[in-house]
C-alpha cells in the first residue's frame, strides 16, 4: 500500500465527482447565502448586509407572506407525520406478515403513485375533485354522503389539507417500503420468544416490533421533514405559482419561486429569493441537527 511517490490515481478517481459536486452543489449553496446579503440598486449589485433579512422579517408585507408560508409548511409536514407515516407503518406491518399471499403484488401496486410525477398527480386529483367533472360528488352520492362534498381545492380552509393528503397518497409507498425492510430484519426467534410469553398478534406489534423499528421511523421522519420543507412541485402543478386560493396553499418552495421569478404584479428579485433560500436552509439545518444530535443518538438500538 505505502508507496513513496504521489499516487496520482487517487486524484484521478476523486476529481470528477468532487469537481462537479463542488461546482454545482456546494459552491452555489454558499453563493446563494452570500447573494442574500446583496441587493440590486439601479442595476448594480450592492452589498447591503442583513437588510434583505430585515425586510423579510420586518416589513409587514413580506413577513406576513413568510410566516404564512412557514405556517402552511408546518401544517403540511404535520399531516404527513400524522397520516402518511402511520398508514405506511400499518401497511408494512400487514405486508410483512408471514404467509400472506400476493404480498409482492400489493407492494408493487401501492408503490405506483410514488413513481408518478407531481404534475400527473396534481392534475389527476384536480380533475377527480373537480365539481365540473363530478367523479368525487357522484361517488360520495353513492354512499349517501353527497352533502359532504365541497370544491376542496378551491376553498381556502380546505385547500392546503387536501393537497397535503394528495401528497400523502403519493408518497405513502416510501415509509411502507423502509418499514417493511426494517420489519423483515427482526429475527423470528425474538417473535417466538414473545409468543411463548403469550405476546401475539397486535400486542406483539406494539411491544416487540415497534420498539425495534424506531430507528427507521426516525429516518423516515427526517426524510419527510427535508422533503416537505423544500416541496414545490405539487403545489405549483395543482394551484400555480400563486398558490391559491388567496395564498392559502403557499409554502416556502412556492414563496421562494415567486419571489425569485416574480409574478403578475411583482418583479422577480433574486436577492430576496436568496434570502428566503437562506431561511429554508436554516430551517432544514435545524431539523437535521435535532434529528442527528437530539433523536438519533438517544434512540435505543437493539443488537439483533
Amino acid at each position: 500500500m505505502q508507496k513513496p511517490r504521489t499516487r496520482w490515481h487517487i486524484l484521478v478517481f476523486l476529481a470528477p465527482a468532487v469537481l462537479i459536486y463542488t461546482a454545482v452543489m456546494i459552491f452555489p449553496l454558499f453563493n446563494t447565502l452570500r447573494l442574500a446579503l446583496y441587493s440590486k440598486i439601479d442595476q448594480e449589485r450592492v452589498y447591503t448586509g442583513l437588510q434583505n433579512f430585515q425586510t423579510l422579517f420586518g416589513d409587514p408585507i413580506w413577513s406576513e407572506q413568510f410566516w404564512n408560508a412557514l405556517g402552511n409548511n408546518f401544517w403540511f409536514f404535520l399531516i404527513h407525520m400524522l397520516v402518511q407515516n402511520p398508514i405506511g407503518i400499518a401497511l408494512a406491518a400487514l405486508l410483512s406478515h408471514p404467509r400472506l399471499r400476493f404480498a409482492a403484488l400489493y407492494r408493487s401496486a401501492i408503490f405506483i403513485p410514488t413513481i408518478l410525477s407531481f404534475v400527473i398527480v396534481g392534475f389527476a386529483w384536480k380533475l377527480i375533485l373537480s365539481p365540473i367533472w363530478g367523479i368525487a360528488p357522484s361517488m360520495l352520492d353513492a354512499v349517501g354522503l353527497k352533502s359532504l362534498f365541497a370544491p376542496w381545492l378551491g376553498k381556502e380552509e380546505y385547500a392546503l389539507t387536501t393537497l397535503a393528503l394528495i401528497s400523502v397518497w403519493q408518497f405513502v409507498g416510501i415509509p411502507m417500503m423502509l418499514i417493511y425492510a426494517a420489519l423483515l430484519t427482526i429475527p423470528e426467534e425474538i417473535l417466538e420468544a414473545g409468543e411463548i410469553d403469550g405476546i401475539t398478534g397486535m400486542s406483539a406489534f406494539w411491544k416487540i416490533k415497534l420498539p425495534l423499528i424506531l430507528p427507521s421511523i426516525g429516518i423516515i421522519s427526517i426524510l419527510t421533514f427535508v422533503g416537505n420543507f423544500n416541496a414545490f412541485d405539487l403545489i405549483y402543478a395543482a394551484q400555480g405559482a400563486l398558490a391559491g386560493p388567496d395564498f392559502s396553499t403557499d409554502i416556502l418552495g412556492t414563496f421562494m419561486y415567486r419571489t425569485f421569478f416574480g409574478f403578475q404584479l411583482q418583479l422577480g428579485d433574486p436577492h430576496m429569493g436568496a434570502a428566503i433560500a437562506g431561511a429554508m436552509f436554516a430551517i432544514i439545518l435545524v431539523g437535521v441537527c435535532i434529528y442527528l444530535f437530539g433523536i438519533q443518538t438517544r434512540m435505543r438500538r437493539y443488537q439483533l
Binding site: 468532487v18 452543489m25 452555489p28 449553496l29 453563493n31 447573494l35 427535508v226 423544500n230 425569485f260 437535521v288
Partner: peptide, 30 residues
C-alpha cells in the same frame, strides 16, 4: 488510505441531507 480520506467522505456526504434546490439562485447565475 490517504490523508483527508475521512474528511472527504464527510464532505461528499453533506449533500445527502441538504437539498440542492436551496442553491437555485446561484445555480441559475452559474
Amino acid at each position: 488510505r490517504f490523508r483527508g480520506n475521512l474528511l472527504m467522505g464527510l464532505y461528499l456526504a453533506l449533500g445527502i441531507m441538504i437539498p440542492i434546490r436551496i442553491g437555485t439562485v446561484a445555480i441559475l447565475d452559474l
